[in-house]
Amino acid sequence: MPKPHMQRILVIGTTGSGKTTLARQLGQVLGLPHAEQDAWQWGPGWQEAPLEQFRAEVDAFTAQSAWVMDGNYTKAQDISWPRADTAVWLDYPAPVVFWRLLRRTLGRMWTREELWNGNREQWSTLLASDGILRWFFRTHWQNRTRNRQKLARYPHLDVVRLRSPAQTRRWVQRLAHHTPLTSCR
């Protein structure tokens, strides 16, 4: 059973940091439902969901008493962040995230893995102006600053800032073994 202070968990971090993987693990370890905001954001054919639809999905999911949700979308932050009690921030160095993102993206392209709603990574968009790799370079450093600012606006959140994949693995192992968790900003 999850600790009372870890019932509604946001997993944030830059593109490619491993938000969804960690959020799924937390859901399994704590027995909580998991949702990925990208699945609500991207409809078939990479069509962006209407704002009202996206916000309704976030509202319905976070109205539950316990959950784990990953994503950085600000367009429904006013709904989810006040409801959360914990923010887990994957704050890894750029080279670590870039190589993880590149490996993940190329692997998905090679295997034709479906992401959400029939969407798949495509070779033709790998280096496009709106492609995932360029998005990383446009947003990684900005997101670090923005996450600090966002977290300051929500002082009720218990913040777990993880700065390396190894630190994240150790934290999840402690959580799985019900060892007391430490929180840090």
Rank of each mutant, 00 (worst) to 15 (best):
P4C: 08
P4T: 10
H5I: 11
Q7A: 12
I9P: 01
T14V: 13
G16N: 04
G16C: 07
S17N: 11
L22S: 03
L26V: 07
L26K: 02
G27Y: 00
L30G: 04
L30P: 00
G31R: 10
P33K: 10
D38I: 02
A49G: 01
P50A: 15
L51V: 09
L51K: 12
Q53P: 02
F54S: 00
A60D: 12
A63R: 15
A63M: 09
S65G: 15
V68G: 00
V68A: 02
G71K: 00
T74E: 12
S80H: 13
P82Q: 07
R83S: 02
W89K: 05
L90C: 06
P95E: 09
V96R: 08
V96C: 08
W99A: 11
W99H: 11
W99Q: 12
R100F: 10
T105F: 06
R108T: 02
L115R: 08
N117S: 10
N119W: 04
N119V: 04
E121R: 00
L127P: 07
A128M: 14
S129C: 08
D130S: 05
G131Q: 05
G131T: 04
G131H: 06
W135V: 11
F137H: 14
T139L: 13
H140F: 12
R144P: 01
R146E: 06
R146P: 01
R146N: 15
R148Y: 12
Q149L: 13
Q149F: 06
K150W: 14
L151I: 07
R153W: 11
Y154M: 03
H156S: 08
D158I: 14
R161A: 15
R163M: 07
S164M: 11
S164K: 13
P165V: 07
Q167M: 08
T168L: 13
R170W: 09
W171V: 06
S183E: 14
R185S: 10
